[in-house]
Measured scan of single mutants.
Amino acid sequence: NEEPLPEGWEIRYTREGVRYFVDHNTRTTTFKDPRNGKS
C-alpha cells in the first residue's frame, strides 16, 4: 500500500529492471523515491 507519487512524477524501470523516478516538472530523473526519500 504505497502512497501515490507527487504530481508530475512517474515510475519507470531500466532495461535491467532497476526502478527509478521521472520528475516531469523539472525533466529530471532520480533513483531516490520522492515519497519518502529512500532509494
Rank of each mutant, 00 (worst) to 15 (best):
K32F: 12
D33V: 01
F21Y: 08
R12C: 13
V18D: 07
E3R: 10
G37R: 08
I11S: 07
R35K: 02
R35Y: 03
K38M: 15
N1Y: 13
T14D: 06
T30G: 04
K32M: 09
R12D: 03
G8W: 04
W9C: 00
G37K: 10
R15S: 12
G8D: 03
Y20W: 04
T30M: 04
T14I: 03
E2N: 11
P6D: 04
E7Q: 13
R15E: 10
G17Q: 05
S39D: 15
Y20R: 01
N1E: 14
Y13F: 11
D23W: 03
N1D: 14
P34E: 01
E2W: 11
Y13G: 01
N1T: 13
W9S: 00
Y20D: 00
E10M: 06
H24R: 09
W9P: 00
T29V: 15
V22G: 00
G17V: 01
I11F: 06
N36C: 15
T28S: 09
R12S: 06
T30L: 03
I11T: 07
I11A: 07
Y20Q: 03
K38D: 15
E3F: 09
T28C: 15
D23A: 03
Y20L: 06
Y13C: 06
E10D: 07
T26K: 06
V18M: 11
Y13N: 03
I11N: 01
R35N: 03
G8V: 02
T26L: 05
V18H: 10
P4S: 09
D23G: 02
L5H: 02
R12A: 09
F31I: 08
R35S: 03
N25V: 09
P4W: 07
Y13E: 05
V18N: 07
H24Q: 08
N36Y: 12
T30N: 03
R27N: 15
R15W: 10
R15L: 12
T29K: 15
T29W: 15
R27F: 09
E10Q: 08
K38P: 15
L5V: 06
T29G: 07
S39A: 14
R27P: 05
T14S: 09
G37I: 11
K38W: 14
H24G: 07
T28A: 06
G17D: 04
G8S: 04
E2F: 11
I11Q: 08
